[in-house]
Design a protein around this nucleic acid. Sequence first.
DNA 1: GTTATCCTTGACGTAAACGTCAAAAGAAGT
DNA 2: ACTTCTTTTGACGTTTACGTCAAGGATAAC
Lengths: 140, 140
Amino acid sequence: MNIISTKSNEDKVNTITEMCKLFKVSARTLRFYESKELLFPIRRGQHRLFTKSDRGRMKLIMQGKRFGFSLEEIRQLLNLYNFGDHRTRQIKQTYQLGLKRLSSMEQQKKELGLAIKDLKTQLQLCKDMLLKRGADSRDL
Amino acid sequence: MNIISTKSNEDKVNTITEMCKLFKVSARTLRFYESKELLFPIRRGQHRLFTKSDRGRMKLIMQGKRFGFSLEEIRQLLNLYNFGDHRTRQIKQTYQLGLKRLSSMEQQKKELGLAIKDLKTQLQLCKDMLLKRGADSRDL
DNA sequence: GTTATCCTTGACGTAAACGTCAAAAGAAGT
DNA sequence: ACTTCTTTTGACGTTTACGTCAAGGATAAC
């Protein structure tokens, strides 16, 4: 919580291999994301250095992917987290998109809840059937 | 609720274009799913007829896709809903898979909840900033 | 200063999930 | 029976999201 540790967290930069280990992705993936403008590593000479901003973006990218969003969909929303650098008009658009995305995520959460319920029911049916067929309950 | 309507619901079969309209997908998609063994339409001559089972499967497929699962992942789980036709050993495996899938879906739901919370926060920040920059609140 | 390691930019390859014709066979209306 | 519409089976094309070399430049270690 002191200045040094804060600084070392805030200002810390990572090489590409460090970044790979942090997020369990390949270097190719990180370069690919940069080429698609999802990440903006700074450069020391030729080499990339990933900043806190990139780490934050990567977290969101990974999240978005788990929820089934495409990289392009993710990219559009990422600007929401860097709105300092953009013009008001652009931010407005991103904001609108964010609202839509939010409602679609809430919808998805609902559906996910229902799907979970269905799956539970189905698993129970399946279990009963297996037990009737003489399966050992310790296997299940 | 009478015999006729039940029969017509249970036994109703759909041509491929009917099925397309029902699920808003292309014919190519349905044929593709059949080739990947996610659907098993019966045949009248050469033509495909999709049964209730196929409709049920399609519902699950669409759901799975929205949650970011691959067709192969979906296929593996689909057997859970047709376990009558398989051998006990196979059903056991599918059951195990179902349990894992269930927990991963529950995990995903949790994460989705967190992501929604974050997004809300970020949208609020963005909104505040836009208002400070002099945006008309009626636009947001 | 040179050896070993890391990183860079191409460039081609690949798997998943379809799209998009083409040519022909079936079914349906009249 | 004739036309029209639907459907079928290939087969090749496309997009997304990377994987996988190859060849060379940059850094770090000693």
